[in-house]
């Protein structure tokens, strides 16, 4: 039954910031459908609304109006607690600034989503560290890792609990070109192998080559590029 639903479905989604006189309209009547297993790039300049859209799809923010469905679950009407539980179980996040917990080791960071979901088997965490080539860095403090290594730990953390949807916000923004490519290849390989859906916000042209579809935000609406 679940396969009948698209991975992401947005209908007439609007997002405003501020109130009354100083209202800022960031997204207007966004329509978007992303299928399962798709790798979609959200391309555009800074301030175009990419992160806002990612926040809405990632259940981190609420739309001003419209409907958002992820795997057939309407998240725009979910209460705070339910949205939190939804994020915990169904989503994986990769951020530009890695946002690892600095006081945990690489292994502990990767293991965190498992423990939050009540899974105490450490095998998936060890396996993904191996897949990411970080088996020798498992016990290291993340602060001692290079930028590329830290982003690989972040990828591991996003994928370890096998979420159906991965959201990546400028994952190569803090990395050099070569490391950036390596990271994109890693993410692409892993999500395709697991059949997961990936939405990546970026302004990097190089990433476009990996995507199934490229979208952009023009006049506050999502359009195909």
């Amino acid at each position: 039954m679940a396969n009948e639903y698209p991975a992401v479905n947005l209908s007439r989604v609007c997002k405003n910031y501020g109130q009354a006189l100083i209202k800022q309209r960031v997204l207007i009547d966004v329509e978007l459908r992303i299928n399962r297993g798709e790798f979609v790039v959200l391309f555009g300049r800074s301030g175009s609304g990419k992160s806002t859209l990612l926040n809405l799809i990632g259940a981190m923010d609420r739309p001003t109006s419209g409907l958002i469905e992820i795997d057939g679950i309407q998240i725009s009407n979910l209460k705070e607690r339910a949205r939190t539980e939804f994020r915990r179980a169904s989503l994986g996040f990769i951020f530009q600034a890695y946002n690892l917990i600095p006081t945990l080791t690489a292994f502990e960071n990767v293991k965190l989503p498992l423990t939050l979901n009540g899974i105490f088997d450490e095998t998936p965490a060890l396996k993904i560290l191996n897949d990411l080539g970080l088996e020798n860095k498992a016990g290291s403090s993340v602060e001692d890792l290079s930028g590329g290594e830290q982003q690989r730990v972040a990828i591991g953390r996003a994928l370890v609990h096998s979420p159906s949807l991965i959201l990546a916000d400028e994952p190569t923004g803090n990395l050099d070109i070569e490391t950036g490519h390596e990271i994109i290849r890693l993410i692409d390989g892993l999500v395709r192998r697991n059949g997961q859906t990936l939405i990546m916000a970026t302004h990097s042209q190089e990433v476009i080559g990996y995507a199934d579809r490229v979208l952009t935000i023009r006049d506050r609406k999502v359009v195909e590029l």
């Binding site: 939804f86 994020r87 946002n99 917990i101 939050l116 953390r157």
Partner: peptide, 9 residues
């Protein structure tokens, strides 16, 4: 970050 990963208020 913890909130994004699903830690509740």
């Amino acid at each position: 970050c913890l909130r994004a990963l699903g830690v509740s208020r």
